[in-house]
Simulated assay, not measured.
Amino acid sequence: MAAGPTEALTFFERMRVWSQEFPPADHDRDALATYEPIGLTGATPIGELPEDVRSALEEGYAVGKQALESSLHTTVPTTDGWQVNLHVFDYNTDFFEVGALDNRGWQLTDPTTRYARRAGAALGGLWGNHGYEAAYFPTYVDAAGQQLSGAHVYRLRLSPTPPVRAFWSLTMYDLPHFFLVTNPIGRYSIGDRTPGIVYDDDGGLTITISATRPADAKAAANWLPAPEGEFRPLLRLYAPGAAVLDGSYRLAPIERTDSDDDSADSITDEETR
């Protein structure tokens, strides 16, 4: 094993230290206690544990990381490509401050799934709200079920626009890190507060998603810049209306608007510059 700390051992060392500095809630103590026999909550730094234990931690971390990343794509129900789950951030069952409801209908209490759900929520978008405060709809695919990629041009038609009592926004994130995407116009999201957007005649909004700025003026006004590689947009609806909470409001799928020939021409143009 390398002399320096690895990603896996750094993770478990942080867990060891922080689990002692920040004691768990009562209902989490039994789960944390199961880690004591292998030294994950003890006084010995993880880097000083026996070689076989460190090797097992490395292997377990790799398996767990792969399973966690995969769960973001496979464990949430989808409608027209959008993941629909109003309860993804309901893992909090202990602390209720202003605006949070101590309501069993908004709590994940199953100990066999709560930790995995919480880990998935942290990876995909840490510190989210309960569904009645904000609803989150991510998508990885277009209308044909293909992974979204900056190699193509897409259109999202919101008609009607999301029913909210506050505001809504569609934010662009790259993959696999879920980072914001640097772009020439400094636009990381588009929504009902975005200056200069142009609505359709029926009050809907047509958003163009692409890595390059659209030539059409209206499409450029409603442009959400994408990275050159794969990406995942996330729609946030703050103070969602009743139609969102009861599931009657449905989002249209993101449609690819360019052809394979267009993509090939674009790549050729980029390569010859």
Rank of each mutant, 00 (worst) to 15 (best):
T109Y: 02
P111H: 04
T113V: 14
R118Y: 05
G120T: 05
G120A: 13
G124V: 02
N129Y: 13
H130K: 14
H130L: 10
G131D: 00
A135E: 00
Y136C: 01
Y136G: 01
T139R: 05
T139H: 01
V141W: 04
A144P: 06
Q146C: 11
A151Y: 09
A151R: 15
Y154Q: 09
R155H: 14
R155K: 14
L156F: 01
R157V: 03
S159N: 11
S159D: 12
S159H: 07
T161L: 10
T161K: 12
P162V: 11
P163D: 03
P163L: 00
P163W: 01
V164K: 01
R165S: 10
R165W: 01
A166T: 10
A166H: 13
S169M: 14
S169E: 15
S169T: 15
L170F: 07
T171M: 03
M172L: 08
M172Y: 03
M172S: 09
D174E: 13
P176G: 07
H177V: 13
H177D: 15
H177T: 15
F178L: 06
F178H: 09
F179C: 12
L180H: 10
V181D: 12
I185M: 09
S189T: 09
I190S: 03
R193H: 06
V198K: 13
V198W: 06
Y199E: 00
D201M: 05
D201H: 10
D202W: 08
G203S: 07
L205T: 00
T206F: 08
I207H: 05
I207Y: 08
T208M: 07
S210T: 13
S210G: 12
S210W: 08
S210Y: 06
T212K: 11
T212L: 12
A215G: 11
D216C: 04
D216Y: 06
A217E: 15
A217F: 05
A217S: 13
K218R: 15
A219I: 08
A220I: 11
N222H: 07
N222D: 08
P225C: 08
A226T: 07
E230S: 12
F231Q: 04
